[in-house]
Amino acid sequence: MRTLYVSQSGCYLCLHQEQLLIKQGQTVLDQVQIPLLEQILIFGTSQLTTQLIRVCLQRNIPILYLSRMGYCYGRLIAIERGYRQLSRYQQQLTAIERLMVARAIVQAKLKNSRVILMRHQRKQPSETIAIAVQNLDHLVSQAGQADGIERLLGLEGAGAACYFPAFGECLSNRSFVFVARSRRPPGNPVNAMLSFGYQVLWNHLLSLIELQGLDPYHACLHQGNERHAALASDLIEEFRAAIVDSLVLYLVNRGVIDADQDFVYADGGCYLNDSGRKKYLRAFLNRMEERLTIDGTQQPRWDVLMQQVKKFKQFVYDPSHIYQPYQIR
């Protein structure tokens, strides 16, 4: 089954017998057999015919509408898919089952952070990075034995405290100075890009969680409330370094983003301005649209996120198979 990502604006999706056609003007960009479709994600401004929407509803193929930043405007689903059948199973997960998944999530986050640092260490050795890698190794071991969520959150915080100063050592563009993570508000251009990227990624994960029928307010590591979709906060942890941090390094070290021209300082913080957001989103979407081989088929990097959400869904149905987070090599 295939997830269809339509990220080009101005496309027109229509039905031709058992084929979904993606057109731009009179040009057919792609075509997919309807029986092979699992879901459709529309980024930006594209149109679907009423006939195609009706067939998707009849065949339980959800359609998700997102902004170019990944913010979910809404989704079209068949009536029978609209009930939160999984929420009851999520609520029935035991404290031990939640703790085991929370351990795995924190360990994956720490390991992925370590890989990002080691990649730079091989190119340009640094004592700060070497010490951070050793500390992260130690924290990974401790996280695997943590006896509670509070302990895990403490270890996650300790990991960030040693990771981000070393992350600053990986920046080769002297126009960007970064010594520590600051969020509310972001204090400098690097923090501005990290915060913006995390928000884009979090929004997209929330959309995929909703699409799979999971309850985003029941999680394992973070506590949810009416204003916090904790499951999105859980699942983003394994992707922070792999997707956002690595992209920020690319944008800074390759000179794609300009420290003077692409940011604005307001309300005590630093933020990407219009030109900066355009550059960031263009690079972000290009990276997420890169084709990877997933389960034997070519799919965009977006699909890695979908596969992890599906794995968590499988864990909810069968907690004996503990959720395995995404790890980079």
Rank of each mutant, 00 (worst) to 15 (best):
S175T: 09
L171F: 02
C220M: 04
F43N: 05
V177T: 11
L76Q: 12
V28S: 02
P165Q: 00
Q261R: 15
Q299C: 13
D258C: 15
G10W: 02
Q8R: 13
Q212E: 11
N253W: 01
M1Q: 08
Q92R: 13
L29C: 05
R227G: 03
F176L: 13
V244L: 03
V190Q: 09
G44E: 08
K310D: 13
K111H: 15
E97R: 09
H138W: 14
P165E: 00
R183S: 02
Q212A: 08
W202P: 05
I77F: 05
F263L: 11
H16F: 03
Q8V: 10
M118N: 15
H120M: 03
L205N: 04
I116F: 06
H120W: 08
R114Y: 06
R151D: 14
Q58V: 09
D30R: 11
V133D: 07
V101T: 08
R114C: 14
V264Q: 14
Q261E: 11
K311V: 10
Q51C: 01
M1N: 13
Q24C: 04
G144L: 03
N188F: 07
C162K: 01
H16A: 00
A108I: 02
G157R: 00
T297P: 04
V133H: 11
N191E: 07
R254V: 05
I149G: 12
I105M: 06
Q8A: 06
L153D: 12
D215V: 04
P189C: 00
L139N: 12
N273A: 02
I129K: 01
E38I: 06
I22H: 00
Y5K: 08
S275C: 15
A108N: 03
A266T: 13
